[in-house]
Design a protein around this nucleic acid. Sequence first.
DNA 1: CAGAATCCTCTACGATACTG
DNA 2: CAGTATCGTAGAGGATTCTG
Lengths: 133, 133
Amino acid sequence: MEANNNFARQLQGLPEGQSLENCPVRQVMQGIFSKWSTLLLQALGERPYRFGELRRLVPDISQRMLTQTLRDLERDGYVYRTVHPTKPPSVEYGLTSLGQSMLVPLKELVDWATSNFSDVRAARDAYDADANG
Amino acid sequence: MEANNNFARQLQGLPEGQSLENCPVRQVMQGIFSKWSTLLLQALGERPYRFGELRRLVPDISQRMLTQTLRDLERDGYVYRTVHPTKPPSVEYGLTSLGQSMLVPLKELVDWATSNFSDVRAARDAYDADANG
DNA sequence: CAGAATCCTCTACGATACTG
DNA sequence: CAGTATCGTAGAGGATTCTG
């Protein structure tokens, strides 16, 4: 019995004959792990925020990417967007129940990253030192 | 009291005065979520594999990216690499204890993605349909 | 206030060819 | 077998300017 070419598919819960390009796991993951999404999801996990509040909360993000990331998160169903027709307008963003559900395992990974960053950094430094030595 | 500019830093466990660019959480995350890393980590979570075995396991990956992803995972301390000086050479890859530790929360996220993909897809379809309507 | 539009850069990734 | 080296492309993301 040779190595099974469908192993990767099985790992990702992919039905037979479907490409890895459309892999469910990857599709979900790529939505969560754009440059700013994890940070924004964590912020919205505390309470809903308005657009301008989020800008001040995460001053390093460009306006363009804030808009786009929020749109992507909205599209995937993690975030709702409510426009209050005031003047000037005010827009509120918050987590949907799907977003709250997803944030649970995501937070565990974030916690792991926080707790084990020193080990990762040490491994990196050792690897790089070895390459230069 | 205006919105606190250091909120994002606090969320990511960043000490005062340190840039988000070097944020521990993001540094760890970006290592885990390159295009192929999650898949490879899951594979190596089963048992160690040789380079060629991994290629056959994940036929869609290019040789270049397989090498590079494994190197990155090795650099971050998740994966070990053992060269057996046979002829022709054989190289074994496997999870370190750090990698096994990280795979625990990662798997929970993968499981969430698998379980909730239909909801995410439904949200996407609804969003896209609305945009075209 | 909350964005849309445009332009530009940088890097992730793939394809291909070669090697100890 | 397990890579390295080189080239080319698409997309992510930043900076800037304009608007209902």
